[in-house]
Design a protein around this nucleic acid. Sequence first.
DNA 1: CTTCGGAACTGACACGTGTAACTTGCTCGT
DNA 2: ACGAGCAAGTTACACGTGTCAGTTCCGAAG
Lengths: 322, 322
Amino acid sequence: MNDVTPRRVTSADVARLAGVSRATVSYVLNNTPHQTISAGTRARVLDAAAGLGYAPSAAARTLRTGRSDVVLCLLPDWPIGHEVGALLANLSAELDRAGLTFLAHPGTRRPAGHLWRSINPAAVLSFRRFSAEETESMLGAGVAPVVAPLSRPDTPEGPQQRIGNLQAAHLAAAGHTRIGYAYPDDDRVRAFADPRLEGVRARCAELGLAPPLVRTVPLEPEPAAGVVREWRASGVTAVCAYNDEVALAVLAGRETPDGPAVIGVDDIPAARLATPALTTVTTDQAAVAVHLATAVLAAVHGEPEPVLDLACAIRVVARASA
Amino acid sequence: MNDVTPRRVTSADVARLAGVSRATVSYVLNNTPHQTISAGTRARVLDAAAGLGYAPSAAARTLRTGRSDVVLCLLPDWPIGHEVGALLANLSAELDRAGLTFLAHPGTRRPAGHLWRSINPAAVLSFRRFSAEETESMLGAGVAPVVAPLSRPDTPEGPQQRIGNLQAAHLAAAGHTRIGYAYPDDDRVRAFADPRLEGVRARCAELGLAPPLVRTVPLEPEPAAGVVREWRASGVTAVCAYNDEVALAVLAGRETPDGPAVIGVDDIPAARLATPALTTVTTDQAAVAVHLATAVLAAVHGEPEPVLDLACAIRVVARASA
DNA sequence: CTTCGGAACTGACACGTGTAACTTGCTCGT
DNA sequence: ACGAGCAAGTTACACGTGTCAGTTCCGAAG
C-alpha cells in the first residue's frame, strides 16, 4: 500500500540516496563558491537529484534567503495588445536565461503593495512611475523597483518622444507642412500619448512647421470622419496617430482616397492589411526586451541602471498611407 | 541611529505589540474556526497589525501549508492579442475577489514542470491539454490542473466549434451556399483553428451545403488576393475566417468591392474600422473570465468541474462585410 | 465543596532550505 | 616527528508561519 499523499521530494531525500549530508547536496546543486566537493560525490548527488526528479521548494528557498527569483511585472490596466504581448514573451525568455522567473500580474485596480510584500520578488517591473513612498518601501524590503524606460515622461529624449519625432520627420520629408495629431480616446494611455505628441511638437518646431493640430479620434468611423473634415478644412494634409488603431480610424474616416496621409505606431498585423497599407513606426520588441532584462538584472544586483540607447530599435515602416 | 536593514515586520512583532502570543495573532488574522478569541483581544491584534503594516510572508505560509494562493497561468507561445489580454485582466480581477493571486507566465518553450514544482501554486491554468504524466504529477503534488475549456478539441459541442457554427449560420442566412474557410498561416494556433473549422463543416452539413473550401491565407495582401481569386473561380461567395486578422487579409485580397462576403472572429478594434466594416463573432471575455474563475475555484477546492454553458457568451456582430 | 467543561490563550513543533561554524583525515614542509 | 594547512564533509541554526496539544481561569452543575 503506497502513501495516499506522495510527499514532495526534498533535498534530504537526495542526500539519503546519495549517502551524503543535506548540506553537501545544497553545496553541489547551487555550486557554492569556496566549497570543495570531490568529483565522485558531486556526480552521485547530481545523479540522485536527477533520478528523484528533485526540484527545490521556491517557498523554502525564499524564506531562507529572504528573496525569491521572481521578477514581478505589474501590468497596467490599459488594454494589452499585440505588441505588449510580444514584449512580455521576449522579456520572459530573456530573464529565464538569467535564472529569473518572470511573472505578470494583470492590473487589479487596488495598490499592489500587498502583492510584492508577500511574494518577496527580486524586482518589480512596472510601466508607471512608483510613488516616493512606494519606492522607499520597496527598497527597504530589499525589492528592486524598475520602471520600464518606455514610460518615462520625464526624459525629453525618451523612446516615446522619439516615436513622435520619427512620425513627424517622415511626413515632413514627404513634403507635408501642416500636420495633425490623432489623440486617443482613452484616458488610460495618456502616459504614452503625451510624450509621443511632445515628440511630434518638437520635431515640427525644429523643422519650422506649425505645431500639430491635435484632435481626439474615437475608434468609430463616423466620429473619425468628422475630425478628418475638420482637419481638411484647416489645411492639414497629414496626420500622426497615437496608435495603429487610431490611425485606422483616421483612414476609415477619409471619405475620399485623397484624404490626409496617415502614419501610426506599433505595426499591428492589421496595419499592412489596411487600404491603403498603413505606414507606421515599429519598435523591435526583442531589442526592448533585452534592454529591459539588463535593466532588471542591474537593479537586482544593486548596480546602477545601464544607459542603453533604444533609439536604434525604433524605425519607420513605409507603406502606402504616407 | 536606525537599523541599516529595516527588517520585515513579522507576526511576532504584532504579537509583541498587542501583548499576546503569536498563535493568537495567527488565529485572529486568519479567523480560524473553532477558536474563541475575546472581542478585546481581537481588536488589539487587528489594530497592531494595521499599525505596523503587517503583511504575512507568502513564502513562509506556503512552506507551512504546502500550498500557495497563487493561480499560475501558463501562457501559450502563440501571439497574445487584444482578446487574451482582456481575458487575463478579467480573470485576475475575478480570482482576486476569491482571495487568489493570479500570475501569468509567458511561455518559455521548455516544459513548465520546474515552474509549478517550485512555486507550489493552488492551480495551474493552461490553454493546452496536459499530458497524462503531467496531470498525474500535478495531482500527486496537490496542484489542481485546469485546462481552459476554450481549448478542448475533444468536445464536439465546445465553444470553438460553436464559433464556427455561428459563422456558417450567419453566412447561410444571408443566402450564401458556397462557403470558403480562411485557415491561418501559423501552426501554433491549430488547436483553435481546427475545432472552429469543424464547427463550420458541421453546420454546412446540417444545412445541406457543400463542405467549406479550405485555403490557408497569409497575412499579406498579395498572397491573399491569389486565394480570393481561387475562391471566386470555384464559385465561393462567402468566407469564414479563423480570425479577424485573417478576415482583414481576405478583405485586402478582394480586388473588386463585390468580392466574397467575410466574417471573422474576435471583434478586434480594427474590425469596425475596416472597409467594409467587418462582421465578426465576438466572445464576452468578462463572462468567460467568470466561467474560468469558477472552474479554477472548483478545482482548488477539489470539487468536480461545474458544467457551465458558454454558448450565450458567443454572438455575431453583424456589420457590412457579410 | 468538589468537579467538570468550556472560554481564552500559550508553548512548541514542523515545513525545506542556505550557510556559518565545526570536525576529520591527510599531505607536506621543517 | 610534529604541527600547519587544506580538502571534504557534517552539524546546527534561522527564516516566518499554521496548528496541535496543553494550560489556566472561571462559572455552573452536582
